[in-house]
Simulated scan of single mutants.
Amino acid sequence: MAADRDTADARPEDGRDETRNERSDRNWSELLQEFRVLQTGTQILAGFLLTLPFQPRFGELNAFDHILYLILVVLAVTVTLLALAPVTMHRLVFRQGAKPQLVQVSSKILMVCLAAASLLFAGIVMFVFDFVTSPTVGVWAGGAVVVLIGLVWIVGPRWIRAARDRAA
Rank of each mutant, 00 (worst) to 15 (best):
M1G: 11
A2K: 08
D4E: 14
R5I: 14
R5W: 13
D6K: 05
T7G: 07
A8F: 06
D9P: 01
D9Q: 09
E13N: 06
G15L: 12
D17Q: 09
T19V: 00
R20H: 09
N21R: 10
R23V: 11
D25T: 06
R26P: 12
R26D: 15
N27I: 01
W28E: 10
S29I: 05
E30D: 12
E30P: 00
L31W: 02
L32M: 13
Q33P: 00
R36V: 03
G41F: 09
G41Q: 05
G41C: 08
G41W: 09
G41T: 03
T42N: 15
Q43Y: 08
Q43S: 09
L45M: 07
A46L: 15
F48Q: 05
L49S: 03
L50S: 06
L52P: 00
P56T: 11
R57M: 04
F58A: 03
G59M: 03
L61E: 06
N62M: 05
F64W: 12
F64D: 14
H66C: 05
H66Q: 14
Y69H: 02
Y69A: 00
V73W: 08
V74M: 13
A76M: 05
T78G: 11
T78S: 15
V79T: 01
T80L: 13
L81Q: 06
L82D: 14
A83E: 03
A83R: 01
P86F: 11
V87E: 12
H90S: 06
H90Y: 13
L92D: 03
L92M: 06
V93P: 05
F94T: 02
F94P: 02
R95A: 15
R95F: 15
R95Q: 15
G97Q: 11
A98T: 03
A98G: 05
A98E: 15
A98L: 14
Q101P: 01
L102M: 09
L102T: 04
V103L: 05
Q104A: 14
V105Y: 15
S106C: 05
S106I: 01
S106W: 06
K108N: 04
K108V: 05
I109N: 01
V112E: 08
V112Y: 12
V112H: 06
V112K: 02
C113M: 08
A115P: 05
A116W: 03
A117P: 00
S118P: 07
L119M: 14
A122G: 05
A122P: 02
I124R: 03
M126N: 06
V128P: 02
V128H: 04
F129Y: 10
F129P: 00
D130M: 00
D130E: 08
D130C: 02
S134E: 15
V137A: 15
G138E: 07
V139E: 09
V139Y: 13
W140H: 07
W140V: 13
G142A: 09
G143N: 10
A144K: 00
V145Q: 08
V145R: 00
V145M: 11
V146D: 04
I149Q: 07
G150T: 04
L151E: 10
L151D: 07
V152Y: 13
I154L: 13
V155F: 15
V155M: 06
G156A: 09
P157G: 03
P157S: 02
R158F: 13
W159F: 12
R161Q: 11
A163Y: 10
D165C: 00
R166A: 14
R166I: 05
R166T: 12
A167P: 07
